[in-house]
Design a protein around this nucleic acid. Structure first.
Lengths: 238, 238
DNA sequence: GTTATATGGCTGTATGACAAGTTGATTTTT
DNA sequence: AAAAATCAACTTGTCATACAGCCATATAAC
């Protein structure tokens, strides 16, 4: 017998989710212009042949994404400017290597610039935070662990020192996706890899401490490129 | 008489929105660990003293954000890895200058790196696209317009040539927010500003065309810094 | 012609009902 | 005693209905 495995059995997504998907792509594709009136819930329910409940839950999702705006009594409108909408990198399959390669490329860019800014702006508190995260990482490795979580915290501590909350949030987000990739891929690691990675971490700490932005950027960028390579992702940056 | 103006009258957000806000912050603050079971809809409805309908719409929003996962019959769980969640820079008031300053800083970083990559990777098609967008922008300015939309398209064309879809999407998103700021602030512009901006645009085109990544990066970065300064936002980058 | 006033339509909320699936304890079987 | 089948309680998904509150437009009154 050769069963397909639980995870490959396709479960029909909930109706509300399907409806949200449909309406969302309609809006994004431009079938509804910004500011335009949206069909009423009753009309949508009738056309899609679902209950108003389902339509409302779908609309709730679109509102959350900033695609629609509603007012009690008034009619639903497509958002005037979509600038408020959330950023979402369509969650491609985690195993899509090209997708991940581009993500690591982005990561190399924003983390290295974050490190450069950190070198210029890190307060004493920031620096203490970075060093503490570095120590934690070292401890985790000494214990024989991979230090995945600690590494994540170290990178976060560095970018936090950049003083730019948007950049911090972005790096946080991207790193989270990258680390998820590591988790799902059960990466084979040897002591060598970990040691060289840790050497790079140390280099970042020193550069930030010395206020050497260019060096912090350089090492950080190299570090991510190496990290990507360790995961079989080949990236090159100018 | 001194009325507060329509936009200052506070409208009570819908219950579902408030509930979503509450639950969302509970999760993000860590009160619910990833993978943890979430209270049932009935329980939430009772505790929050709202109907199950409201709870369900709130949950629909959280599901859209990738914070929760549900299965018919099974209990709702906090997402195991929050990596799928959407990125959202809490839409602070557009007039929060510090917020905008940081946004422009981020913009300078990612656009300049996008331009650098574009210089290395732009195909003939990409280049034609960039040039066409540049021409459109010139036309719009010649007509006496601000060319806001055309400028947006030009920047998008450049980053698209980077060949990195994530970076493209990110730049698109950030630019959209930045341009919204320009719109709402009714920027005072003089011919001088427009001309110097256009000169910088031309510089980017040439650098990309020549495959000069460093130059493309430099000009692009300067360009955004100037753009920010024209809007009264002072940023400095290493 | 301008100002009040109905009116129908829309979203927001609540309630009740049932289907379909999961979960964990209970019972049965081995 | 251990494994398997059963079952009952609970959970999410969906539908239907009802009504409150708000909005825009048509209608009536002045």
């Amino acid at each position: 017998m050769n069963l397909p495995g639980r995870s490959n059995i396709q479960r029909q997504p909930a109706l509300a989710e399907q409806v949200a998907e449909i309406l969302s792509s309609e809006i994004i594709s431009g079938a509804f212009a910004p500011g335009m009136l949206f069909p009423s819930e009753a009309e949508l329910a009738q056309k899609l042949d679902v209950s108003r409940t389902v339509v409302r839950e779908a609309l709730a999702r679109l509102k959350q994404d900033g695609l629609l705006e509603t007012r009690k009594g008034g009619r639903t409108k497509v958002a005037e400017n979509l600038s408020r909408r959330a950023l979402r990198l369509e969650d491609q399959n985690d195993l899509d290597l090209e997708w991940m390669r581009h993500l690591y490329e982005l990561r190399a860019i924003i983390e290295s610039e974050g490190a450069a800014l950190a070198a210029l702006r890190a307060t004493k508190k920031d620096l203490a935070h970075i060093k503490s995260a570095y120590t934690e990482l070292e401890k985790a490795i000494a214990k024989g662990g991979l230090g995945t979580k600690e590494s994540f915290n170290f990178h976060r501590a560095v970018v936090e020192a950049s003083g730019n909350p948007h950049l911090t949030k972005l790096v946080d987000w991207v790193d989270d996706k990258a680390f998820a990739f590591t988790r799902t891929n059960n990466l084979i690691v040897d002591k060598n890899m970990i040691d060289s990675a840790q050497a790079e971490h140390e280099g970042i700490v020193k550069a930030v401490q010395n206020g050497d932005a260019a060096e912090a950027r350089r090492i950080s960028r190299e570090h991510i490129i190496h990290a990507a390579r360790r995961r079989g992702l080949n990236i090159s940056l100018p």
